[in-house]
Design a protein around this nucleic acid. Structure first.
Length: 561
RNA sequence: GCCCCCGUAGCUCAGGGGAUAGAGCAACUGCCUUCUAAGCAGUGGGCCACAGGUUCGAAUCCUGUCGGGGGCGCCA
């Protein structure tokens, strides 16, 4: 929109200056146009003169003057560009005719729910893999953070026109010692439920959810496993424990607004022979060698700092072998953009996973791995210690009970994935009215209420094209319109940069500007129906943007509060 | 020992080459006979951890130091 047109105008000015010999011929780079922080610096700004000054051998300020003069006189953009000036060390600032903001409102009204969508990621087939927790306990608050990041990124890619799949990788390999421990723990609880003496192993799972599963099995199957052969029973119980846990995780995530297109079983990779095939391929490509009876991936050839075992000396494949097969499978299914959202304990796996992908001949640069930092839970300022085995974790389900889905999603999304996130349950419980999410939702509810009142009082919202939008001249109206105009760019920034937390900041900005507008500008005025009409168009556009924004974050947009 | 993340207002954090560094919360002062006060306006509050370097320009990039959090496997 406006930004692209300005970049185009600057490019033309630069090219014509070079044609006329006023500027020496250099390659024209991508022209960055941004919204200046200080509104006195105009609606848009570019630093192109400063970045090109050295190469063009002209002082930045002078180059800016040359370009500004041409932008003023070239004529083509005059309807849009009202004034161009040069400021500071060589910024070119653009003051636009207000008509671009009116065009924005018309655009928002026309596109409605699709305002913000684009083709910025057209042709991209994105596979987002996230959460992927072990099926040995409920979804934790930490995994939930990865869930919100991954799900929101998926929504952003959808808005950018990509084909998107969400996938959960289940670490259900049969040889997992964790899963066997989990199965043993379930057997113990099962026996205890039936009144049989049984001792929980030291590294057993103490969580109450294990007992819950045992009760469920007793209720369903009674004591029929009591006399079963021990090994056989352990295998069966490990499987049942896993199935129950996956079902619980699925339900908890669904309640959190996260649904996966596929729950991808690690075990299926082993059973289908894909792990063996990947290992074979690595050998063929000369990327694997034997040492100490084990098979090693030469990951150091691809930037890792150590070679990694693929097959243990007992012949069993390692986690990285399965991961290599999994990522190969992703590419083989036609995905050209792989995004993995992993927890902080996985940062050491980035290099080796990328190495495995490259060693198999796939483009490692198409794989982006996002590591989010830990969520620490506090209760009344005290750190809550968490251990899955000891069973004193706070689950996603409990978190939602405490603070609700909207607040949980908003909070877990609010911080950059690079920052550790402190979540104080006590605070969230006692001061939930002060959560920023309410601030944003309140803006939406206020708008809905306003539009209901307008309807009752006979103030119809005119079609945007018919409204006298030029009457919107109050600074609060202008600022709000600018924010609404920026939404499509924000989607692309948050999406392509993989920074979904930007949405929370954008939502708070938008809400703040609406609240300010609401305070400063009375919308319904019997004495000025035309102004009222224009303002109602602005209000409805704002509802559209807030609605699209909240939907993208997976947070509800209430009509009443 | 090696690796990752963080260090910005009293607190929790945005900003991650650009102009006068922001928000929420907390504190204080105002604003509801009129569309939702879950709101708005104002005040106070900062050596952007520290030291070098790169750059026309550094909170932002690079090096190092210090402080905090997390991770290192032929576990998954």
């Amino acid at each position: 929109m406006a930004k692209e047109r300005i970049a185009e105008a600057v490019k033309n000015a630069l090219e014509s200056a070079m044609r006329d010999g006023e500027v020496r011929r250099i390659a024209v780079p991508v022209i960055e146009v941004e919204v200046p922080r200080n509104r006195e610096h105009g609606d848009f700004s570019t630093n192109i003169a400063m970045t090109l000054a050295r190469e063009a051998q002209i002082p930045p300020r002078q180059l800016a003057e040359v370009l500004a003069a041409r932008l003023q006189s070239d004529g083509a953009p005059t309807r849009l560009i009202q004034k161009v000036d040069v400021a500071g060390p060589g910024f070119i600032n653009f003051h636009l005719s207000p008509s671009w903001l009116h065009d924005t409102l018309v655009e928002i009204e026309r596109r409605g729910d699709s305002y913000g969508s684009s083709d910025a990621a057209k042709g991209v087939k994105a596979l987002l893999e996230f959460v992927s927790a072990n099926p040995n306990g409920p979804i934790t608050v930490g995994s939930a953070r990865g869930g919100v990041i991954g799900d929101t990124l998926a929504r952003l890619y959808e808005l950018m026109g990509a084909e998107v799949a969400r996938e959960y990788y289940i670490n259900d390999a049969a040889n997992s010692t964790q899963m066997i421990n989990f199965g043993k723990s379930l057997v113990v609880r099962y026996l205890q439920e039936l009144g049989v003496e049984a001792q929980m192993p030291e590294d057993g799972y103490q969580g109450a959810y294990v007992t819950d599963i045992a009760r469920k099995i007793v209720a369903r199957d009674g004591d029929r496993y009591l006399d079963m052969q021990e090994d056989e029973r352990l295998t069966l119980f490990t499987r049942m424990a896993e199935e129950e846990m996956i079902a619980t995780q699925k339900a908890d995530l669904a309640a959190f607004g996260i649904e996966f297109d596929r729950w991808f079983s690690e075990r299926s990779l082993h059973e289908s022979g894909k792990v063996a095939a990947a290992i074979e391929k690595l050998k063929e490509r000369g990327c694997a060698y034997e040492k100490d009876g084990a098979l090693w991936l030469k990951s150091t050839d691809f930037g890792d700092d150590k070679d990694r075992a693929l097959l243990r000396s007992n012949g069993a494949p390692t986690y990285i072998a399965a991961d290599a097969a999994y990522h190969a499978d992703k590419f083989d299914r036609g995905f050209n953009r792989l995004i993995n959202v992993w927890g902080p304990d996985h940062h050491g796996y980035i290099a080796r996973t990328k190495a495995a992908v490259a060693a198999l001949g796939y483009p490692a640069e198409a794989l982006d791995i996002i590591i989010y930092q830990a969520v620490r839970l506090f209760s009344g300022g005290e750190l809550v210690m968490m251990s899955k085995r000891a069973g004193d974790v706070i689950s996603l389900a409990e978190l939602m009970q405490e603070v609700g889905r909207d607040a949980a999603r908003f909070f877990l999304l609010m911080r950059s994935h690079d920052s550790q996130l402190d979540f104080d349950l006590e605070l969230a419980r006692s001061q939930s009215d002060e959560n920023p999410v309410y601030y944003v939702q309140y803006a939406h509810a206020r708008i809905c209420s306003l539009l209901r009142n307008a309807d009752e009082k006979g103030f119809a919202v005119p079609p945007a094209e018919a409204a006298k939008l030029e009457l919107l001249t109050h600074p609060s109206e202008i600022e709000l319109m600018k924010k609404l105009a920026d939404w499509p760019d924000e989607v692309v920034r948050a999406g392509l940069e993989h920074e979904p937390h930007r949405l929370a900041a954008f939502a708070m900005d938008t809400a703040r500007l609406f609240h300010k507008f609401y305070t400063d500008c009375r919308v319904m005025d019997e004495a000025d129906r035309e102004l009222s009409g224009a303002r109602l168009v602005l209000v409805r556009s704002c509802r559209t943007v807030l609605g699209n924004l909240l939907r993208t974050m997976g947070v509800t947009a209430p009509e009443r509060m």
